[in-house]
Computed example of a mutant assay.
Amino acid sequence: MGAIKLALYPRNQIRKSDVARAVSVPARITILKEIIAEGRTNGLYLAEVLKLSQPTIHHHLMTLKSSGLIKGDFFNESYYWTLNHECEDELNALKWFLED
């Protein structure tokens, strides 16, 4: 597959594509749901709840972070993840994905 020529597309379409890619995996939707339910959480907790390895959780968290949907803060020798409320429009658009 060839490279995507980002210059050909409006910025808002690229943003929508980034967010869609971030929620294209069921584990990432579950991670977002856990972050919403807990308010903030760390990777070890998510690995335990989702029954996935810590490196796999890390990969999913980095994908969500690069999309801008979550942010991490270092506290007590661990990163804690929260929703990035600067992306409120995107998070509101994802409500259907995040419903039970």
Rank of each mutant, 00 (worst) to 15 (best):
L8E: 15
P10N: 07
N12R: 07
N12K: 10
R15S: 02
K16E: 14
K16G: 11
S17P: 04
D18P: 01
D18E: 09
V19W: 09
V19G: 06
A20T: 11
A20F: 03
A22V: 04
S24Y: 01
S24C: 03
V25R: 02
V25H: 11
V25E: 10
P26M: 11
P26R: 04
R28E: 01
R28D: 00
I29D: 05
K33H: 00
E34A: 12
I35Y: 00
A37G: 12
A37R: 15
A37H: 15
E38S: 15
E38K: 14
R40M: 02
T41A: 03
N42F: 15
Y45H: 10
L46E: 05
A47I: 07
V49Q: 01
V49D: 00
K51E: 04
K51N: 03
L52E: 04
S53H: 07
S53A: 07
P55V: 05
P55D: 06
H58W: 05
H58Q: 13
H59D: 10
H59C: 06
M62I: 05
M62H: 09
T63S: 05
L64M: 02
K65S: 14
I70Q: 09
I70A: 15
I70R: 04
D73A: 11
F74W: 08
F75W: 12
F75I: 13
N76P: 03
E77G: 06
Y80K: 01
W81F: 14
T82V: 15
T82A: 10
N84P: 10
N84F: 07
